[in-house]
C-alpha cells in the first residue's frame, strides 16, 4: 500500500508537469511593449516553482516507499542534517529564491505602473457598467465633456451621462462599444466605473486592472500587433458578469482614422 502510494505521488507529479513542459495550455501571444518582462518572470517562476514541486513530491514519495511498514525492530535513525540544517537550507535556498523573484518581479511591475505615459499618448476613457464596457474618444477638440451621473440613460444611449445641450466639449465626444486603437501608438486609458467594481483584462496585452467606483485610475500601454482581442471583466459585478466583454480592435493608423471618422459621423 505504501509503495503504491509512493508510485502514485511520482505519477501525479510527472503527469502534472507534462502539460507545463509541453506548453499545452498557455496564455496567448503577447502584443504589448511591456509584456515581455512579465512573460520572462512567469517562466522563471515556473522553473523555480516546478523544481520545488517535483523535488518535494519525489522526496516525500521516496521516504514513504523506503520507511513504511518496517519491522518493529528496525532501527530509528535521524536525518543526518538535523533540523538546523533544514532550517538553514530553507532560509538560504527559498530565501534567495523568493528574494530574486521579488526583486526581478518588481522590475516587471514597475515597468507597467511606475512609468508615466508619454505626453503624446492618446487618451481614451473606458467606462465599465453592468454589464458592458463603453469607450469614449475626446473628438477633434481633444477635450472630454464632463460626466453627469444623473443624465446617464442607456435607453437613449447616453452611456456616459454627457450633456451636449450645455456642454460644448461633450458635443464631439465619440462613444463606441468597441475599443479601436492604432497599432504602435501609446494609449492612455482613463478608467471610470459607472456602478460597481469591474475589471479590464486583455490577456494579449498583459494588462489587468480593476475599475474602482468613486476613484478613476489610469493605465497606459502600446499594442504592437494588428488584430481583434477580447476585453473581459474579471471582477464579479453581478449576474451578467460572465458576458461582460468588449473587443479591442488594433488597426493600422489609416484604418483607425477612418474608423474614428465613421464613428463621429453617426
Amino acid at each position: 500500500m505504501a509503495k503504491l502510494f509512493a508510485v502514485t505521488i511520482f505519477v501525479i507529479a510527472i503527469l502534472s508537469a507534462i502539460p507545463i513542459l509541453r506548453h499545452t495550455w498557455v496564455a496567448p501571444e503577447d502584443i504589448s511593449t511591456h509584456g515581455a518582462l512579465i512573460d520572462k518572470q512567469m517562466s522563471e517562476t515556473m522553473a523555480e516553482a516546478g523544481i520545488s514541486f517535483l523535488a518535494a513530491q519525489f522526496v516525500l514519495g521516496f521516504f514513504i516507499w523506503k520507511f513504511s511498514n518496517r519491522p518493529a525492530d528496525a532501527k530509528i535513525t535521524k536525518f543526518p542534517g538535523g533540523a538546523k540544517g533544514l532550517v538553514i537550507a530553507a532560509f538560504l535556498v527559498v530565501g534567495i529564491e523568493v528574494l530574486a523573484l521579488g526583486v526581478f518581479g518588481a522590475k516587471a511591475w514597475a515597468n507597467v505602473y511606475f512609468t508615466p505615459p508619454s505626453s503624446d499618448a492618446m487618451p481614451i476613457q473606458a467606462q465599465a457598467g453592468q454589464f458592458a464596457f463603453y469607450f469614449r474618444y475626446p473628438g477633434p477638440d481633444k477635450k472630454f465633456g464632463g460626466i453627469h451621473p444623473e443624465m446617464v440613460n442607456e435607453g437613449t444611449q447616453n452611456i456616459f451621462g454627457l450633456d451636449p445641450e450645455h456642454d460644448v466639449d461633450a458635443r464631439d465626444d465619440i462613444v463606441a462599444a468597441e475599443m479601436a486603437v492604432p497599432v504602435n501608438k501609446e494609449i492612455h486609458l482613463l478608467m471610470h466605473a459607472k456602478d460597481v467594481g469591474h475589471s479590464f483584462f486583455v490577456r494579449e496585452l498583459r494588462l489587468q486592472q480593476d475599475f474602482v467606483p468613486g476613484l478613476d485610475v489610469t493605465l497606459h500601454f502600446t499594442a504592437t500587433k494588428v488584430g481583434k482581442y477580447e476585453i473581459v471583466c474579471t471582477q464579479l459585478c453581478g449576474l451578467g458578469h460572465y458576458n461582460m466583454k468588449a473587443y479591442l480592435n488594433v488597426m493600422p493608423q489609416a484604418d483607425f482614422d477612418a474608423w474614428l471618422k465613421q464613428q463621429a459621423g453617426q
Binding site: A56, L60, F63, S68, A72
Partner: peptide, 9 residues
C-alpha cells in the same frame, strides 16, 4: 518530510 527519514511509518 525529513522526519519520515529513518522512521517506522
Amino acid at each position: 518530510t525529513f522526519s519520515l527519514y529513518g522512521s517506522r511509518l
